[in-house]
Amino acid sequence: MRGAPETMAVLRPKSGAEAVKLYGQQTKAVPLAGGTDFMVLWNLGLLNGRTILDLSGVRDWRKIAAARTGVLVGSLATHAEIGRHPTVRAEFPLLVSACATIGAAQIQNRGTLGGNIANASPAGDTFPSLLVYEAVVRTVSPRGKRKLPISEVFAGVKRTTLGPGELIEAVELPFLDKRPSRRLFRKVGTRLAQAISKTVAAGILRLGKGGVVEDFRFALGSMAPTAVRLTEAESAVVGFKLTPAVVDEACRRLERSVSPIDDIRSTREYRLEVSRNILRSFLEGNQ
């Protein structure tokens, strides 16, 4: 393996406050949470000589706490821990499903939600669920604390809007006002387990009186430089009954929010058609 450990400087904070202080002093340092993505590149010898902010000692950011308005997931909670948490399981099943599809057990036991977000992969499997739940990312830096809607965190492929020295402390998951009538998480990967997404979808839908859609949120990953909400398709649906014409219009509008590409894992044609099929079967109520 090509990583050279003796070329690495490691900062090892023991608390969130210390992490912020150290990172503020060394903004070029790489914050390391679960390391499941960083270490792959490090093993290829591509990241020798870096300074690492090892967050493993920051216990206070690992907690998952349920409150009256929602759940606060510490940025260093692992995918396995999130998937096991009873309140998360009861209220945020789309996130639970997403966590269960990230790598396999070994990765779920190491990878963290905060690391996943900061890494900002276009194929991040938790992001469509976070977008649908309108999660809020809490950050902290020497300049103070911020709350960002998840939709404002991603800036592009592996890029975020976080500033220098800014760390993710936790992710707020606000409870939904009302139970959705339908929900969906669907990951289409390169194989049936331990796969990277070709497309990944999350959605909720609530029907009101007379079959009128009161709430509809739908998000896709691996379909654009960042995970995206299908706002155009959503607005074609909310306030309407799910007639064939409405469903068709929503499916037509899908393309306006995404820009899938041909790559080593799939094709633009496939990603679009499958995403449309998933959206359609969700709206038709037969997923």
Partner: peptide, 11 residues
Amino acid sequence: PVNSCLIPVCS
């Protein structure tokens, strides 16, 4: 279970 190839020992 974890992948020991992705874990710096300090963590």
